[in-house]
Design a protein around this nucleic acid. Structure first.
Lengths: 241, 241
DNA sequence: CGCGTTCTTGACTGCTTTCAAAGATGGTGG
DNA sequence: CCACCATCTTTGAAAGCAGTCAAGAACGCG
């Protein structure tokens, strides 16, 4: 239950955003400072609150500093589908276009803290980091399509958990197969195209098999190599040499 | 079976690419000329051929001049999922990043003709058109996720056909609910996360209901307003005012 | 006309959903 | 510290949508 991160013991270690973006490409110290400065002016959104509304204009791109968010599509009959996660250090509302409207709503799954994205002009490292981030995000989106289209409930859950772990690890928020999972089984169901009842039953199978511990909003994944093979999970690679 | 387009009777009317891109934003005549010139140097890919390979470097962005292509993810056990279509006038291999690797393979579903994308620098109209095109593409991708996650086979097919029609219509390739559909039922199945047997049975239901005519690689959709309501289909909007 | 691919059909299996209700959990106020 | 409430998780039984396997029919192409 207790997550210890002994190696990062300085009072105020690097934020998730700095950890993530500086791991995507080499950032100058000026660029890291720009990020830290930007993090000073935060914006808070309560759980369930809307960060972006589908069809509404996108003001400016933001970076998620803490908390989990997701893109979502709502159907009129009550069904809804979570299109993809947005985790700390990741960007919201990137677009290359003036007068752009959001192509999907974004809501906060937990309480979320955001800040404006530092201007990438005259900061090639940041521009590169944003571009790499966008490319990685695209590959997460494609993975979500393949997951929903061709994996069983059992495989979907494993594949998705492996992805979440990888994404959190990039931001320094997962360690040793353990990471937070602040979502109800109903949210999981909406993310994975299942019902909450079936998510529940499948999670129990995974627990019984010993590959998964799940309690108090925190997960421990065991035997990850075997699981990754099972669902053909591949780590993200978007840049060459 | 015979598709007549009487209004465009000049010998060489606008290409699908020019039709589509100039409908996304206002293009100057120089920009339209640049497109037409670019179309002079074509590249051909046979059906089933690879246009982009996942994990390989992306050379340059291209425009599809004719034929259908798609992004695809292949699983080791033979399963595969088509991630999304790429239709005439749409762009392949857009990325904002040097040394980028393709995040998914792209294959030709039919014989495909491509050309290099004219340089958008110093051509604000083209830059805008590419940006709008990318935004629209993103909304198609989100729609694919929602389709696979939350619609039944019956709904998936209708929703997808409505989207294909809208996309072809933008390029001037659909009219009066009739458009080409050069895909086998097995391809449809891989696109919609179903088996070909179930696609077959569902198509028969649609035919029996009279909402769909399908033969010789060509479709006719009837009662589109009713169908659109049935699956909560919304036309794409990505730019304000 | 012959062959390979694609489409169609039937019978059966099974994964996932639905509906309903009971149990656990966590936060709040008394 | 405990009772209480809302939310979340768990369980059971039954139904349904979609998958599997297999074989025959139709189609398109050379």
């Amino acid at each position: 239950m207790l997550v210890v991160t002994p190696k990062i013991s300085t009072t105020h270690s690097r934020s998730a955003a700095v950890t993530r973006l500086s791991s995507l490409t080499l950032l100058s110290s000026e660029e890291m400072d720009a990020l830290s400065t930007a993090e000073g002016t935060r914006q808070h959104v309560r759980a369930q609150g809307e960060i972006l509304v589908e069809g509404a204009p996108v003001r400016e791109a933001s970076i998620i500093l803490s908390g989990w968010a997701c893109r979502v599509r709502q159907f009129p009959n009550g069904r809804r589908q979570l299109l993809g996660l947005l985790l700390p250090g990741e960007l919201v509302g990137e677009c290359r276009q003036r007068s752009a409207l959001a192509t999907a709503s974004v809501i906060a799954l937990t309480d979320v803290t955001l800040c404006a994205r530092p201007d990438p002009r005259a900061r090639p490292g940041l521009a590169e980091a944003y571009a790499v981030s966008a490319a990685i995000e695209e590959s997460y989106i494609f993975r979500q399509i393949a997951r929903l289209g061709r994996l069983t409930a059992y495989e979907r859950i494993l594949d998705w958990l492996l992805e979440v772990q990888e994404r959190l690890a990039i931001a320094g928020l997962a360690e040793g197969g353990r990471f937070p999972l602040p979502m109800t089984q109903e949210m999981l169901a909406d993310m994975l195209g299942l019902t909450s009842v079936h998510v529940n039953r499948t999670l129990q199978i995974l627990r019984r098999e010993g590959v998964l511990e799940l309690s108090g909003g925190s997960v421990l994944l065991r035997e990850q190599d075997r699981l990754a093979e099972l669902v053909d999970y591949r780590s993200v690679t978007v840049t060459a040499g």
